[in-house]
Amino acid sequence: MTDTAIDIQNLDVWFGSGRDRSVAVSQARFAVEQGESFGIVGESGSGKSTILRAIAGLVPTWSGDMIVAGEALGPRRSKAFYRKVQMVFQDPYASLHPRQTVDRVLSEAMGLHGLTDIDSRIPRLMENVGLGPSFRFRFPHQLSGGQRQRVAIARALACSPQILLLDEPTSALDVSVQAEILNLLTDLRRDHGLTYIMVSHDLGVVGHLCERIAVMKQGRIVEVLDVETMRRLEAADPYTRQLLDSSIQSSRSV
């Protein structure tokens, strides 16, 4: 086996049928190496989240070829798939069950993956994501946005996956917490050899964490380039250049 973690060819994703059919992603193709961190940026509504959701099996209406962690994906995902691939959602306020404590969330995830000695694993897992033991029995409404996102990351890490799909993990968080989460993600990747696909609209964030970046517009991947090229502002596609320009502008002003 080569060390390609994710290989996506000709991916189309659509919603609705007949006259209501709208295409969210068309002819997407990209590959991610084992241990690599791959970023997806682009316009809002361009289908970034949809690609991740299609990989995770949350959108049934797609066509194309996806090979993820050595498994060619069909309409259904196996249990083994979810032990290898996990996802963190965009909105930390909506991704935790309002009536479940951190402990319940994590132990259920571990139980579903058939892990044993859950009681001793939970504190270790929480420590991994920088949550102290005092948070173990809290409900989501007793946590701040950053803490919730840590819980969501911990839940995704519960089964020690190889691949993490990150859907704007920091866009709802403030800059100081964002820095903490980004540092955490960097550490986790180094320690566990994880592969990331990270969606973000913030070029600074993607540039910080990822080596290669796909740029999307209106459901299409217009360009895949590596970070160095991006920093040198040598993008080929006009949309990428526009994106780069405006983001450089907005960070330079002060």
Binding site: Q178, A179, N183, T186, G204, H208, R231, L244, S247, I248
Partner: peptide, 20 residues
């Protein structure tokens, strides 16, 4: 100043971000 420094910057990459 801390808030200003915590932002990752595309042009000036840093291995770790500063935390307040």
């Amino acid at each position: 100043l801390g808030l200003l420094n915590a932002v990752p910057d595309l042009e000036h990459p840093r291995p770790r971000l500063e935390v307040l």
